[in-house]
Simulated assay, not measured.
Amino acid sequence: MAPTSTPQTIDAVKALLLDMDGTLVNSDAVVERCWRRWAAEHGLDGDSVIKVVHGRQGQATMAVLLPDRPHEENIADNARMLAWETSDLTGVVPVPGAPAFLASLAQLPHALVTSADKGLARARMGACGLPMPRVRVTAECVSASKPDPEGFLKGAAELGFAPADCVVFEDSEVGIAAGLAAGMRVVGVGPRAAAYTPTAHVRDLEHLRVEALPDGSMTLHLTP
């Protein structure tokens, strides 16, 4: 189903799987700083690099940009990138509505599924004053980066629900592709997401309400 500008509901939801960067946390400023620094080191155009970095693990992005480079070099560079990003929190802020959204999920099944590693996830969520979900699938937990659906499937399994019962919240092309490949409905969050045909789309998390039902399921109410 293509995104629409009219109000929508998504019914029969049992668990939510949440991306972090661009979905709960706006980290675009630091992502651009760090990746432009890396691009300059390798003689790449910064604008072209920024177009492909969102949603993937760092080494997966490097493999796209430098396809002939040995995997070991990408892994080493990704470790440097994670150190840069974890220490640079200037401009990292919550996506509008994220604090209230996460507060509304406190007693409901949900998980964080992010391409960040544990340290970066803690740093960015902490910088935004956002609570870390109890269930977390970070870069260390998977063998393949988004758009592979492994992370979302692991999140659903850890929460104890079938993929069809889960809804993914994502902002990036590869993240939305991963959620759909996992057999899940996907809510696209923010301006980037609208172009990638999620199940539904919201401008930010202020345009969303989660209704918990007596049978333990949820209904999502989305407004344009």
Rank of each mutant, 00 (worst) to 15 (best):
S5M: 07
Q8G: 03
T9D: 03
D11I: 08
D11E: 15
K14G: 08
K14W: 14
A15I: 03
L16S: 05
L16A: 10
L17W: 04
D28M: 14
A29Y: 02
V31A: 13
A39I: 07
A39D: 06
A39P: 04
E41K: 14
G43S: 11
D47Q: 10
K51F: 04
R56D: 00
Q59H: 15
T61S: 13
T61K: 02
L65R: 03
L65I: 04
L66Q: 13
P67H: 11
P70C: 04
E72L: 09
E73I: 10
I75W: 01
I75E: 13
D77M: 14
A79V: 14
A79C: 01
A83G: 04
E85F: 09
T86V: 11
S87I: 00
V92C: 09
V92F: 00
P94N: 11
P96E: 13
G97W: 01
F101C: 08
A103N: 11
Q107I: 00
Q107G: 06
Q107W: 03
L108Y: 10
H110G: 06
A111V: 10
L112W: 05
T114R: 05
S115F: 01
G119I: 04
L120D: 03
R122H: 14
R124V: 09
C128G: 01
C128I: 05
G129T: 09
L130E: 02
P131S: 13
P133W: 07
V135T: 15
V135Q: 07
V135I: 15
V142R: 01
S143V: 02
S143H: 05
P149L: 06
E150N: 09
L153P: 01
L153K: 04
G155C: 09
A156M: 06
A157H: 14
E158K: 13
E158F: 08
E158Q: 15
L159M: 10
A162G: 10
P163G: 01
D165R: 05
D165E: 15
C166H: 05
V168C: 09
E170I: 02
D171H: 11
S172D: 08
G175M: 00
I176F: 10
A177E: 12
G179D: 06
G179P: 06
L180S: 12
A181C: 12
A181L: 08
G183Q: 03
M184R: 06
R185I: 02
V186D: 02
V187W: 08
V189Y: 02
P191H: 14
A194D: 08
A195T: 12
A195P: 07
D204W: 03
D204H: 15
L205G: 00
E206H: 04
H207W: 10
R209Y: 03
E211A: 14
A212C: 10
P214R: 12
S217V: 08
L220E: 09
T223H: 12
P224N: 15
